[in-house]
Structures are given as C-alpha cells and as structure tokens.
C-alpha cells in the first residue's frame, strides 16, 4: 500500500470515528430534545410538574367539560389509592378541588411518587393545577393513609371540541431510589 493511501485512510478514519462519537452523543441529546419538543407542543400529555398561580378566569357557563379521574398503582406498589369521585362536570374557568385517598399498606415508611398523565394529550396545556400531591414525593408512615386534594381549572380558551378530559395518576414506590 502506498504511503499516500495510508495517510488518507488514517484521516478518513479519524473523521468517521468523530462522526460515530457525535452520533453517540446525539442519542443522548435526543432526551432533552424530546422533552423540549413535548413542552413546546404539549404533546404526549405531559403535564406541568409544578403548581401554577391561581388567576381568575371568566367562567364559561355555556359549556360543561367532564373530567374523569383514574388511579393506578405501578407493579408491586403496596398501596391503596383512589379518588373520592370518579368524574365531575366543570365549567371552563371554574376552580374545583377533588380529593384523593392514598394509604401505605406496609409496616415501613414509604416514599411514593404519583405521576400524572392527561388525555387527550393536546389539552394538557389548558389544564392548570394550583395544588397537587404529584408535585413532589410523598412520604407515608407505616400504615398511614391520608386524603390529598388536587385543585385545578380548565382554561376557558380550550377548543370547543374537547368535552371529556381524563386525568390519570400512577403511584410508584420510590422508597429505595429516593434521594432522602
């Protein structure tokens, strides 16, 4: 092999290895990119992870939206978890508080986290919560059960075609992984 070809090969290999490393990094860059995309577009039913300030809207009495509540436990999470009502009819702009009940069924302290999801995903940006147990990890003493409120409002700007919103919570047992 001629010396010139060896040098050309070495140069090309360096470039290609650089591309490979770049694409490995790109795989990781997709993680924040994906979050950014979800945030900008409100896709995937991702909900704001923190409380919004309570502002008053003009209540739209002309229409009603049914908000349904679903509760679930992740696999092997030893809890009782339910909402006090299954669904409620609200006028857009009207603040509502709904109570949820969760109970630790073990004899140990448990740190659990509820993850919310809203469907259809496109309404997530119109669904505002001023108070929720899902904003942070919840610590339960052994056998402790408690009632926790969620206060929310549906922004009256929500398009007319949405008549039902489903709010789902899943409790995850984070006792082992939680940073205490």
């Amino acid at each position: 092999m001629k010396e010139g070809v060896t040098q050309k090969n070495a140069k090309l290999v360096r470039i290609l290895v650089f591309v490979v490393l770049g694409m490995f990094g790109f795989g990781y860059a997709l993680v924040p990119l994906y979050d950014v995309l979800c945030e900008v577009t409100g896709l995937n039913g991702k909900v704001e992870p923190s409380a919004v300030k309570e502002v008053s809207y003009e209540v739209d009495k002309s229409r009603e939206i049914t908000v349904e509540f679903m509760t679930a436990l992740n696999e092997a999470t030893p809890m009782v978890f339910r909402s006090e009502i299954k669904k409620i009819k609200v006028h857009p702009g009207e603040y509502v508080t709904v109570n949820f009940y969760a109970e630790n069924k073990t004899d140990k302290v448990m740190v659990a986290r509820a993850i919310p999801s809203i469907s259809p995903g496109a309404v997530a940006e119109f669904f505002k919560k001023t108070e929720c147990f899902c904003f942070s990890e919840q610590t339960f003493k052994a056998r402790e059960g408690r009632t926790m409120p969620v206060r929310f409002v549906v922004n009256p700007e929500i398009p007319k075609e949405y008549k039902t919103i489903t709010l789902a919570y899943t409790f995850f047992d984070n006792t082992e992984t939680s940073v205490k």
């Binding site: 591309v19 490979v20 490393l21 770049g22 694409m23 490995f24 790109f26 795989g27 990781y28 993680v31």
Partner: peptide, 14 residues
C-alpha cells in the same frame, strides 16, 4: 451504520 449504531448503543446504555 455509522449514523445509527451509536444511537442504539446509547439507547441500551440508558
């Protein structure tokens, strides 16, 4: 291949 295999390697590493 050089564009996608590193992305897959990243995914399984995650």
């Amino acid at each position: 291949l050089i564009a996608i295999m590193p992305v897959f390697a990243g995914a399984v590493t995650m």
